[in-house]
Design a protein around this nucleic acid. Structure first.
Length: 569
RNA sequence: GGCCCCAUCGUCUAAUGGUUAGGACACGGCCUUCUCAAGGCUGUAAUCCGGGUUCGACUCCCGGUGGGGUCACCA
């Protein structure tokens, strides 16, 4: 068989050769040990948490080594492409501070338009714009007898698979099932003349039963079979498949450390075969275990379709600070995060953030099992992050969140900005600050009652009625309370202790026992206790049973508001 | 089903032949206390099963079992 002739016959218009592209994309001049990594998202929907996770790891490996992090849009399957998805990817990465060194910086619409917003000398960074590159390499493979056309129709393929299933053999286009592998020029010409369409397959030279040892940077040494499958590298449509694009792009772009999801592990033999077919140096590979979720009795990969946790949008909507997500993902990548995060150096530092975590590739080397999402752990990390933020920062972020998700709250918080910050300041600048805000949505719920618009007098009455069933008695207590709390002393007391003494006196006057010991000895006497008195004060001015210390609440709310609320009950 | 990978508290994991099997989150108790949060102290809780090898096994070997991934002209 005259392979060069076959190549010309099949792809007469392709005049560029691999050599041309090698000249156009020279080898990178990087410091020794520098890694070039990349994310290859396909624009099929929202930005997946797994993509964020993979980016974080890949980007960190590149930057820690003085290398480059690339984002290449992998849109070789036009049918699955979702409009606007490129924008979601670019924006999402930027929001989490994971923008690439090379790749799209912005997505404005069409591929052509987006290409004007890319950075880097190894582009285009959108695969659909690289077709002419791929085709040169495909032609080269045909010319060297390493690839050939296959005219099998999808019906024929299905039939073949059925036969294989019946015969209980491995399905696929390999060995004796590779019908067009050794077809004669005559047979090919005949099909071509009849106008038949075809795809291009790699001529495999491996043996499925032979194992090769491969060292994955994260998973360690693996035994993987050789590739014996004549897989497709160029589809009938003329588009390339992922496999071919992966090798051509990563070679040309100088990727020397491929970080990708573990689901790719099983196609590694194909990729190895391709690197060898081109005689390229095989880069390092690190396969990342997927983030899993407990679903009933079983565990499965976080699903784009079924799991809201997979969509970063969910975390944005709930108002988690970006750093909380980053911290959580770091913790998934390197469990040593916990130790670092809780070290004195970090706790006492005002400037250290999760971004300063000393990430290590070593920390990724663990059992080949993906972690389960743990929202409680996320909350714990997030709470730590929020408590480290300044009050102004918290106020600003919460308002920004509320403007999108709770406009009425955003308005009162903005209109009463000073009041809002003093609310958020409660028990904050102490040695052990309150850590009760985990995200803006939940945080809003812990402070909204300070605003009259969110104070529920009816609810307050309901709660109190449970303890004090006699309406007249309750009215009397509240009336007395209103009168007493119209004195400035309850709002101006400097120390907590003095304030408590003052309030205890008031409780006694209103007929409540203030001797705590007595209450402890006879718990049933609770109703007459100081604690009960405080509960009445708390509920009647906040509508809540759980709030920060009343000493601070009175101070922040001020006399007028407190008295007004007591009158409403 | 074939192939590949994996197996320590509920979860994430530490301990690479000798530890009372450690930590974090979650959960319980106590302290503090006007409730909550925070904080301090503290508790419950794990080496999948069965065989070897060894003076000694979470650790090494074999076999089960269980879980995950993957088997496209999708990435």
């Amino acid at each position: 068989m005259d392979y060069p002739k076959l190549a010309e016959l099949l792809l007469p218009n392709v005049t560029t050769t691999p050599d041309f592209w090698y000249g156009k994309y020279p080898r990178r001049d990087l410091p020794k040990g520098a890694f070039v990594t990349r994310l290859g998202p396909s624009p099929t929907g929202f930005l997946h948490v797994g993509a964020l996770y993979t980016s974080l790891i890949g980007r960190r490996i590149a930057h820690d080594s003085g290398g480059v992090f690339i984002v290449r849009i992998e849109d070789t399957d036009s049918e699955r492409e979702v409009a606007g998805a490129r924008g979601l990817i670019v924006k999402g990465l930027a929001q989490y501070g994971l923008s690439p060194d090379e790749g799209l910086q912005e997505s404005v619409g069409t591929v052509e338009a987006d290409l004007k917003h890319q950075k880097g000398n190894y582009g285009p960074y959108i695969q659909s714009a690289r077709k002419n590159i791929y085709i040169s390499f495909v032609k080269d493979l045909i010319k060297r007898g390493l690839a050939y056309p296959c005219f099998m129709t999808s019906d024929e393929l299905t039939e073949m698979r059925n036969e294989q299933e019946l015969a209980k053999v491995r399905p696929g286009y390999y060995g004796k099932y590779a019908k067009w592998r050794d077809a004669s020029m005559e047979a090919i010409n005949e099909r071509l003349a009849s106008g038949a369409t075809y795809c291009i397959r790699l001529r495999a030279n491996g043996d499925q039963n032979k194992k090769q040892s491969f060292t994955d940077e994260f998973l360690g040494e693996l035994q993987i079979p050789e590739n014996d499958e004549d897989f497709i590298i160029l589809k009938t449509s003329g588009g390339t498949t992922y496999h071919l694009a992966h090798i051509v792009d990563d070679y040309l772009m100088g990727t020397n450390f491929v970080t990708r999801g573990e689901e790719w592990l099983s196609s590694l033999p194909k990729h190895l075969a391709l690197w060898r077919a081109f005689d390229f140096k095989v880069p390092k590979y690190g396969h990342i275990m997927p983030i899993n979720k407990q679903d009933g009795g079983s565990v499965r990969k976080l699903s784009k379709r079924k799991d809201p946790e997979a969509n970063i949008e969910m975390y944005v909507n709930a108002g988690y600070p970006e750093d909380a997500i980053i911290g959580y993902l770091y913790r998934l990548a390197n469990p040593s995060f916990d130790e670092w995060w809780q070290s004195d150096a970090v706790i006492k530092s005002k400037t250290l953030t999760v971004r300063d975590f000393p990430f290590s590739i070593e920390g990724l080397k663990r059992g080949g099992r993906g972690p389960l999402v743990d929202m409680k752990k996320l909350d714990s990390i997030s709470g730590d992050i929020v408590v480290k933020m300044t009050v102004e920062d918290v106020a600003e972020k919460m308002i920004a969140w509320a403007e999108k998700h709770d406009p009425s709250f955003a308005k009162v918080a903005k209109d009463n900005h000073d009041y809002f910050t003093s609310i958020l300041s409660i028990e904050r600048d102490t040695e052990n600050p309150r850590k009760d805000i985990v995200n803006w949505e939940q945080g809003k719920g812990t402070v909204d009652y300070f605003f009259d618009d969110f104070f529920d007098a009816k609810k307050a009455r309901e709660i109190l009625s449970v303890d004090i069933t006699d309406n007249n008695q309750l009215n009397t207590i509240i009336k007395d309370l209103g009168q007493a709390l119209s004195h400035d002393s309850y709002y101006t007391e400097a120390s907590l202790d003095a304030w408590v003494d003052n309030v205890k006196k008031l409780a006694e006057i209103l007929g409540f026992a203030v001797d705590r010991k007595k209450y402890k000895e006879t718990p049933t006497a609770f109703k007459g206790d100081f604690a009960m008195f405080m509960k009445i004060v708390r509920v009647s001015i906040t509508g809540r049973e759980k709030t920060p210390n009343l000493f601070y609440i009175l101070k922040v709310m001020g006399k007028d508001r407190v008295v007004k609320r007591l009158a409403q009950i």
